[in-house]
């Protein structure tokens, strides 16, 4: 197993270099001169050449990539064109907010999805099962940005229970775990939790139905074990896979929160990406995507490693 883990970690390195290269390419596939946003419109050819040299655009692409990658490894993601501040600092501040929201959403999705899936798998083909299955199809089919709007209409506009947008008093800088702030998080977190809820419900249902059909459960029953005891066995067998799915879902939410964050003006990476795209702030776009993709790759690695260590049944070669 040690060898498997080592190989898995080493295997991540080329993936990370590939991901970085893709982010590097993003600036080069975008139409127009990369300098167009900082050059004054009446700039002379002379000035343009000077700036090209300053930013290193006159070098061959692999040299540019190597320089950029080396700096990125040291935490230097360049300077935002729009704000003039370092990209790394901007991204790190936003990533915290996105991470908080994504964790909350995954937690909600896991609790309810796990519950639905468990009940559905336990009482297979009953009406509970049918409702749970319908809910999980709804969960993966709903356009979540629209669901966010509908929740705002219901809970903010009609019932006036929860605030519609933002991250609470003091903006993103003064977050605290009190009701004044948490109430701002509820609607976006519920909106985002719908997809993982559907997927986790589906997974857990299949797992539980599978485990209950196995011989050892019949054996336990024959031994006279109570329902509660059998329940504990089922949970123990289903947990590693369910947790792995949850970890992957957290990763998808980290990268996929941009639409929901836009609806709720949540000050995370989604909002940052949105403004980067519309101000054609390519270094900011590149940096945000690199950081989010890195989170996703590392999370995948962690999930794999945890699952291998938690689940003794997995024999990886």
């Amino acid at each position: 197993m040690i060898f498997y883990l080592l190989r898995r970690i080493v295997y991540t390195i080329p993936i990370m270099i590939g991901v970085a290269f893709f982010c590097f390419l993003l600036v080069h596939i975008s139409p127009g001169d990369p300098l167009v946003s900082i050059l004054p419109p009446d700039a002379s050819i002379e000035l343009q050449k000077q700036l090209m040299k300053l930013y290193g655009f006159d070098r061959p692409w692999f040299e540019q990539f190597a320089t950029w990658f080396w700096r990125a490894l040291h935490g230097d993601l360049g300077t935002s064109i729009a704000s003039g501040r370092p990209v790394a600092a901007e991204v790190m501040r936003a990533v915290g907010n996105t991470l908080m929201l994504a964790c909350m959403a995954t937690l909600i999705g896991f609790l309810f999805g796990g519950l639905f899936g468990f009940v559905a798998g336990y009482f297979r083909d009953s009406w509970v099962d049918r409702i749970a299955s319908a809910l999980s199809v709804l969960g993966v089919s709903v356009p979540h940005y629209w669901l966010g709007m509908v929740l705002v209409i219901i809970f903010s506009s009609w019932l006036m229970w929860l605030p519609a947008t933002g991250a609470g008093p003091g903006g993103s800088g003064e977050w605290a775990w009190d009701w004044a702030h948490i109430q701002f998080m509820l609607l976006p977190a519920i909106t985002m939790s719908v997809i993982p809820m559907g997927i986790i419900a589906r997974t857990v249902r299949a797992l539980v139905a599978d485990i209950l059909a196995q011989e050892f459960v019949v054996g336990l029953r024959a031994k006279g074990l109570t329902d509660l005891g059998i329940f504990m066995h089922v949970v123990k067998n289903a947990a590693p896979t369910a947790l792995a799915v949850m970890g992957l879902q957290l990763g998808y939410l980290l990268g996929g929160s941009i639409l929901v964050e836009t609806v709720f003006s949540w000050p995370g990476t989604g909002l940052l990406l949105n403004s980067a795209i519309f101000q054609r702030d390519l270094p900011l776009l590149q940096g945000t995507i690199l950081v989010l993709a890195t989170f996703f790759v590392v999370l995948n690695l962690l999930v794999d490693v945890l699952q291998t260590t938690l689940d003794p049944r997995i024999q990886r070669s």
Partner: peptide
Amino acid sequence: TIDILYAFPSVL
């Protein structure tokens, strides 16, 4: 090569 593109969440 495919794995590298697969390393991004699809929305992102």
